[in-house]
């Protein structure tokens, strides 16, 4: 079961929508951050042990200043953060999708596919969590 979820998203409506999907699937602790700087600070705290690590991060890539790749960089370069699942949810181009592959992010969901598609992808994580929990 995935308890803690971090949403990094600057569009308020998208953040609301995805949070609703997470809650529906059974997430208990959903945090949403609307900029990269606070997301990085959050992860820094996780590294230092002052905050509990989320089980999953739902990440948007396009932000007005720094891009979501900064979060991917931080995640990739810190082995301690590797157990966190990452799902990229963004207005995708093929380039971004390809770049995500370099970071080893397998789950890239285009926003235009709607919340159903997002739910379908997230379902696999929640199901996996459930199976693990049942063991």
């Amino acid at each position: 079961m995935l308890h803690r979820v971090l949403i990094v998203e600057d569009t308020a409506s998208d953040a609301r929508q995805s949070a609703a999907v997470m809650k529906k699937l059974g997430a208990e602790d959903v945090t949403a951050l609307n900029n990269i700087a606070s997301a990085l600070l959050f992860l820094q705290d996780v590294m230092e042990g002052t905050k509990e690590a989320p089980d999953l991060i739902l990440l948007d890539l396009s932000f007005p200043r720094e891009s979501g790749f900064e979060v991917l960089r931080f995640w990739k370069s810190n082995p301690k953060l590797q157990p966190i699942h990452i799902v990229v949810w963004t207005v995708m181009g093929d380039t971004e999708k390809k770049l995500c592959e370099f970071f080893g992010v397998e789950h890239v969901v285009p926003k235009w596919a709607g919340p159903r598609e997002l739910e379908a992808v997230l379902c696999t994580f929640f199901d996996e969590g459930r199976r693990d929990g049942a063991k």
Binding site: E66, S67, F69, E70, R73, T95, E96, K98, L99, F102
Partner: peptide
């Protein structure tokens, strides 16, 4: 260059 810039 654009792709690299996207990655920061």
């Amino acid at each position: 260059i654009t792709a690299a810039r996207l990655m920061g």
